[in-house]
């Protein structure tokens, strides 16, 4: 039994035929070929499948496609806009095996758009708290946290420089 759904993914409206209760993660990977989102636990506990719905990070392995009405953004849809963040990840050793990286980047992209603490001393703890839904078993997180702090800082200063 299949049902037809309309989804807005990475800025494009798309029709898909799915079984009832299909997970958004499977629809993205199997129906739409967007395999950047990874399944590492299937239980909403690791963050590897993180995508944005209307800009908010969610675990796509727990989302049922029928319940999605907002705009879905995956790593494939964020890669260009966040090329600076991706470079910072590479420069700071923010990934090794890379399996969690799509989820880390998607979560971090949403984080960079969030409101940050005014006090610079609180920012690392802020980033670590917000990123704690994304497990990385390789890097020990230092590089991930640095990449996010540096990217956010660079974006703030370039925004401040703009006339």
């Amino acid at each position: 039994m299949q049902e037809s759904l309309r989804l807005n993914v990475n800025g494009k409206a798309t029709g898909v035929e799915v079984a009832p209760g299909s997970r958004l993660l499977d629809v993205l990977r199997e129906n739409l070929g967007l395999v950047g989102s990874k399944e590492a636990c299937g239980r909403g506990e690791c963050g590897a499948c993180t995508v944005l719905i209307d800009g908010r990070p969610v675990a796509s392995c727990l989302v049922m496609a029928e319940t999605v009405s907002g705009a879905v953004t995956t790593i494939e849809g964020l890669a260009d806009e966040f090329a600076d963040l991706r470079r910072a990840f590479a420069d700071n050793g923010a990934f090794q095996c890379g399996f969690c990286t799509s989820g880390q980047l998607v979560r971090a992209a949403a984080l960079i758009r969030e409101e940050w603490p005014d006090n610079p001393d609180e920012r690392e703890a802020f980033v670590r708290h917000r990123m704690s839904g994304n497990i990385c078993r390789c890097t020990g997180y230092t590089g991930i946290v640095d990449a996010i702090l540096l990217t956010a800082q660079a974006r703030r200063s370039s925004a401040a420089d703009r006339p």
Binding site: V35, T74, E76, A79, R87, F89, A90, F95, G98, T101
Partner: peptide, 12 residues
Amino acid sequence: RVIDWEARTNGS
């Protein structure tokens, strides 16, 4: 940077 960093960070 690791040589495959682009692919490892853009989902491909």
